[in-house]
Design a protein around this nucleic acid. Structure first.
Length: 608
RNA sequence: GCCCUUGUAGCUCAGUCGGUAGAGCACUUCCUUGGUAAGGAAGAGGUCGGCGGUUCAAAUCCGCUCGAGGGCUCCA
């Protein structure tokens, strides 16, 4: 059993005190487990009473009593039989016997006792409950026993604990701050996107301001793609079911897709025959009725473009790129703002290459992802190599090809100078992948950029090219998306910048602020000059005091304000106020001010 | 999909024991022309998420349903 850090020990002890309190208030409760987490702790309980917010308060009060009683945490070890007897004695058979059975033979079986409470537990703990000075219960959630949805759902209480009150307060403060940069809140306040229930859950409407950001990002990535020899393609949003049968997306991932669209003639014929819904479903599964699928992935379409003409080894690599919109039936409980949606646009591309080109191509993809991340100042990410889970049957293709692909990815990843972890079970169904993972404001991890090596789909679609030996060979495919999806990436970006986008991405780059209406004409001249230089700008002509105009521009996170009063008009100058350096920056000729903005845009200057 | 919480104006929220809606900000108009984060006044805006029930009477009580939030499961 690995050692716990002092903080984990404290939080784990808090979990035991939580269970102690719950058992005092609800003696019939059956306990499952209560580990520490990155940010606190939880304990899973099985009890008929539905825990409420009021209960949480009562439980927390009881926990304080337990802490005050200053109970000692005592460890004792038992044999397997004695352990079983102890669990029966304390009446916790329902889950604890199973947890006991999980402990491998030869490992010690230990219990911890504090006051009247005894729990099967590897430890470790603080010595006395009095050490718990700063803790707080946060929420109640449902959680399946052993994380399996076939098992009973237990009631989980989340809480957090710190060595001191000050640290707990600081953490709570930090949670409040994080809420302020939540992309769902900022997205509404800054009018970047809208999700409307009349349109549908998880379907994002990009408003004009959000669309500017997306367009700038797409232009940026398109420039990089041109440099790296990609070709742009466009493909439709739907394709025949048969295509996705060949690829394997349907029916293996049927549950994660929108239902197929059945052809009108077929539907009418079946209706005449009195076909039931379940029969129709069977027809679709068996392929005796055809239909169309909203595309869950772009690759089959790109494969068909590759396969639309004979290919020579001299043509390879063929790199096909598309901002391709895909649709997936995510479970309703999983949808979240822009980060988990049902329709999204990937900055997708597929590279078809020879086996000996795979390494170089993967490195090219990884470079691209890193250019994107560096340009946006996103340094807080981790790299995950997703390998297949040897015990799962969800993967297609033969093991030798998988081994080759996994080796190729590992080699490429180790040539990166960033730390990475290998995680079995994180592969795509057709191949292993390298993912770039970032955290959102509430600590949830999201996969953004991804590079995947695929030996399977070329096999399933029987792709070929003619080699130098004049024989047919099978290409290898690489799937990659440096942003992942425009929706998720933009959502994460909103939180990353807290709405303070770099000038090149800002929906409005300059706001011209006349001090009084007398300067409106001059302001219009400046606006014209800015527009001529392709700078996004507007004039604030509200009948407000100047301070109110500044406030409005600040709240809208506009990076630069050009202030014009009667002095500026007389001199033909503007006074700049920047978002990062608030206050008067002095006045300068208009042309110079415009040049400064252009420089900030072209250098893709990051906000400090 | 499951558990818990939640749904009143564009936004943030108030609305006691059931008696058919209120504030601030934003918006419109008028006054004000003010030098770096809120000048003043007036006005407009809601079938209280939807459907059904109980009641003389429902934002308020009950049922169902839709959406949102936090988890769990899932994420090709």
């Amino acid at each position: 059993m690995k050692e716990m850090t002092p903080l984990e020990e404290l939080r784990h002890s808090a979990a035991h005190v939580l269970a102690t309190a719950v058992l005092r208030l609800f003696p019939e409760t059956q306990l499952d487990i209560g580990p520490p987490t990155d940010t606190g702790f939880y304990y899973d309980f099985d009890l008929d009473h539905k825990l409420t917010q009021d209960d949480l308060v009562r439980i927390e009060d009881e926990m304080r009593k337990v802490a005050k009683e200053n109970q000692r945490f005592e460890r004792f070890e038992t044999s397997r039989e004695e352990g079983e007897a102890m669990i029966r004695k304390i009446g916790q058979e329902r889950y604890k016997l199973g947890r006991l059975a999980d402990i491998p033979q030869g490992e010690p079986i230990s219990f911890y006792r504090n006051g009247e409470f005894v729990d099967l537990c590897a430890g470790t703990h603080v010595n006395y409950t009095k050490k718990l000075k700063a803790f707080k219960l946060l929420s109640i959630a449902g959680a399946y026993h052993r994380g399996d949805e076939k098992n009973k759902q237990l009631q989980r209480i989340y809480g957090t604990a710190f060595p001191t009150k000050a640290e707990l307060d600081a953490y709570m403060e930090q949670l409040e701050e994080a809420k302020k940069r939540d992309h769902r809140k900022l997205g509404r306040e800054l009018k970047l996107f809208h999700i409307d229930e009349a349109v549908g859950q998880g379907l994002v409407l990009w408003t004009p301001k959000g669309s500017v950001i997306r367009q700038e990002l797409q232009d940026f990535i398109s420039d990089e793609l041109r440099k790296q020899g990609y070709s742009q393609v466009f493909t439709p949003h739907i394709g025949k079911l048969g295509l996705y049968r060949t690829s394997g997306h349907f029916p293996y991932y049927k549950e994660s897709q929108f239902n197929p669209v059945v052809e009108r003639d077929a539907l009418e014929r079946l209706a005449d025959e009195g076909c039931s819904c379940s029969e129709l479903s069977n027809h679709i599964d068996e392929g005796t009725v055809d239909g169309y699928l909203l595309k869950p992935m772009n690759c089959p379409m790109h494969i068909k473009i590759f396969d639309s003409q004979p290919r020579s080894y001299r043509d390879l690599p063929v790199r096909l790129a598309e901002f391709g919109t895909v649709y997936r039936w995510e479970q309703s409980g999983e949808l979240s703002g822009m980060t988990r949606v049902r329709g999204f646009t990937q900055d997708d591309a597929h590279i078809f290459c020879m086996e000996e080109q795979v390494g170089a191509e993967i490195r090219g993809c990884l470079d691209l992802v890193r250019i994107v991340f560096r340009t946006l100042g996103m340094n807080d990410y981790r790299v995950r190599i997703g390998l297949r889970d040897p015990d799962s049957t969800k993967y297609t293709g033969n093991p030798e090809l998988w081994d080759k692909a996994e080796t190729a990815l590992r080699d490429a990843a180790s040539s990166l100078d960033v730390p990475h972890t290998e995680e079995p079970g994180e592969a795509a169904f057709y191949g292993p992948k390298i993912d770039f993972v970032v955290k959102d404001v509430i600590g949830r991890e999201w996969q953004l950029g991804t590079v995947q090596v695929d030996y399977n789909l070329p096999e399933r679609f029987e792709l070929n090219y003619v080699g130098a030996d004049n024989k047919e060979h099978r290409p290898v495919m690489i799937h990659r998306a440096p942003f992942g999806s425009m929706e998720r990436f933009t959502g994460v970006l909103i939180e990353h910048f807290a709405g303070n986008f770099p000038v090149w991405l800002s929906p409005e780059q300059v706001r011209v602020l006349p001090i009084t209406d007398d300067q409106l004409d001059f302001a219009r001249e400046i606006e014209a000059q800015l527009k001529a230089a392709n700078i996004r700008c507007s004039i604030d002509s509200h009948a407000d005091k100047f301070g109110a105009k500044v406030r409005r521009a600040e709240l809208e996170r506009i990076p630069y304000m050009f202030v014009v009063g009667k002095n500026e008009v007389a001199e033909g100058q503007v006074t700049i106020r920047s978002r990062t350096n608030k206050g008067d920056e002095g006045s300068r000729p208009v042309a110079e001010a415009v040049a400064r903005i252009i420089e900030a845009i072209e250098s893709r200057e990051l906000p400090c």
